[in-house]
Design a binder for these strands. Sequence first.
DNA 1: TAGTGGTCTAGACCACTCA
DNA 2: GAGTGGTCTAGACCACTAG
Lengths: 230, 230
Amino acid sequence: MSNSWSEIRDEIKRRVLERELLPGAKLPNDQELAEEFGCARTTVQRAMQDLVHSGTVNRRRKGGTTVTLHPITRTTFDIPITRLEIQTAGKEYGYFLVSREIRVSPTHVASSFGLAKPMEMLHVVALHLADKKPYIYEDRWIVHSTTPEILDIDLSRESANEWLIRNRPYSDCEVRFLAKNATHHEAELLSADPGDAVFVMERTTWINKAPITMVRAIAAPGYQLVTKAS
Amino acid sequence: MSNSWSEIRDEIKRRVLERELLPGAKLPNDQELAEEFGCARTTVQRAMQDLVHSGTVNRRRKGGTTVTLHPITRTTFDIPITRLEIQTAGKEYGYFLVSREIRVSPTHVASSFGLAKPMEMLHVVALHLADKKPYIYEDRWIVHSTTPEILDIDLSRESANEWLIRNRPYSDCEVRFLAKNATHHEAELLSADPGDAVFVMERTTWINKAPITMVRAIAAPGYQLVTKAS
DNA sequence: TAGTGGTCTAGACCACTCA
DNA sequence: GAGTGGTCTAGACCACTAG
C-alpha cells in the first residue's frame, strides 16, 4: 500500500476539504483506519497527531476522533531578533540608545508582569535602523532585581534585545499585537508624523514565574507581519 | 527510569534554559540519549519532534541535533469565526450588510491573489457588532467565478464570513497583520474618529491554487491579539 | 466498565547529507 | 561511504472518559 503518515494526513485533510467529512463528523477509530490504509496503528496515530496540531480534528479517548466543529485559521509567526530580521532582508543594521534610566514602573507595566505594585526597573528606549532609516522603536522595562548583570552592560553598544536573548532565556512569554497612533516622541524617532498608525508588538517574559522584561516594539509605518496558515 | 517523551523534552529544554547547552551546541545522537534516559530511541525521537516544532533545536540527518543558533519567539494565533469570537466573550452578536456589488477589483486585490490582471469580483462590506457596538468592519472580495453559489446567498441575513467557512473550505491561506489610520468611512461605521489607529487582519485564501476570497478585517480601536509563546 | 486514543518498546530499514 | 535522523511495524500496556 505504501502509505506514509503524511499521505494519510493528506487523505484525511482531503476528505474534510471535499466535504466527505463534515464538521463534527466522527472518524473511524485508529484501528479501523489502520486496516483501511494497510498500515500499523502507530502510523495512523502519527498522522492524527499532525491533524490535531493543525486544528483539523479533535481527539478524545473513548470519544474518538471528530472533525473540528468550527474551523479556525491557525497561524504561526516567528519573531526573530530585530538585527537578524533586518540583515536577513539584506539591509544594513543600525542601532542607537535613546535613553536609559532606573525608575519606578507605571502600573500597567507592573500588572503586565502580574505584580501587585509598581517597582523600580531599568527603563531603556532604543532605536533599530534598517539602511539608516528608523525601523523599530523599542521601549523596554527590565526587572533588574532578577537580572542585575544588565546594569553593567553598556547598552549604547549592545542592544538590550540581544543581550537578554543571549544571556537570559525565558520559560514563558506573552505576546500582544495591537495598533496605536504614534506619539510626538515616537513619530520623531521613527521619522513619521504624530498620529500615524503604527504596529506594536508587546512581549512580556518570565523565567519560572520570575519576571524578566517587557518590551513594546513599535514598527515604522508600513510594517506588516505576514505568514501562511495551514 | 520512568522517562516519558515529555519529560525528556522538558529536560532538554531545561539544559538549554540553564545554558548547559548553548546556542549552536551539538547534542548527543538519539541512540546515546536513549541510553542516557533509559528509553527506546523512538521515545527520544518523539521528544525531539516536539523540540523541533517549538524551534528549540534543529535536526539534520548525519548533521545531528543542535540547539537553535538564533532563538526566536514563535507564536500561534487562532483566528475564529467573528460571530464565535464575540459570543465566546459572552457578548451579543450583531451583523449587518453595508454594501454588495459586483465590480472590477483594484490591482492590489488581484495581485494579492497572484492574478496578473484585475477582474470582476463580488465586493462585500459588512459590520460585525458586539453588544450592539461596532466590533469588526469586514471588507471582502470574493472571486465569484470560483464560487458562483455566493451570488444566490442573501448576504444581509448571513455573513459571507460564515457562509464561506461552512461551504467553501480552503487549502491555502495567507495572513497579514498591520496597522492603519481609519478612513472617514471606516471611522463612521466603527464609531471611531477618522485617523484613529486600527488593527487590520488580512486573509487571502485559495483552494488548490484557485483564488476564493480576500478579506480585510478592521477591528475597532482597542483591539488586541494576545497569545502565549513557547 | 468498556472503548478509544496515548505512549512505549525493540527492531528494522530508509533517506538524507556530511566529510 | 558512513553516520545520523525519519519512518514503520507489531505488540503491549496505560489513561482517560462516554455511556
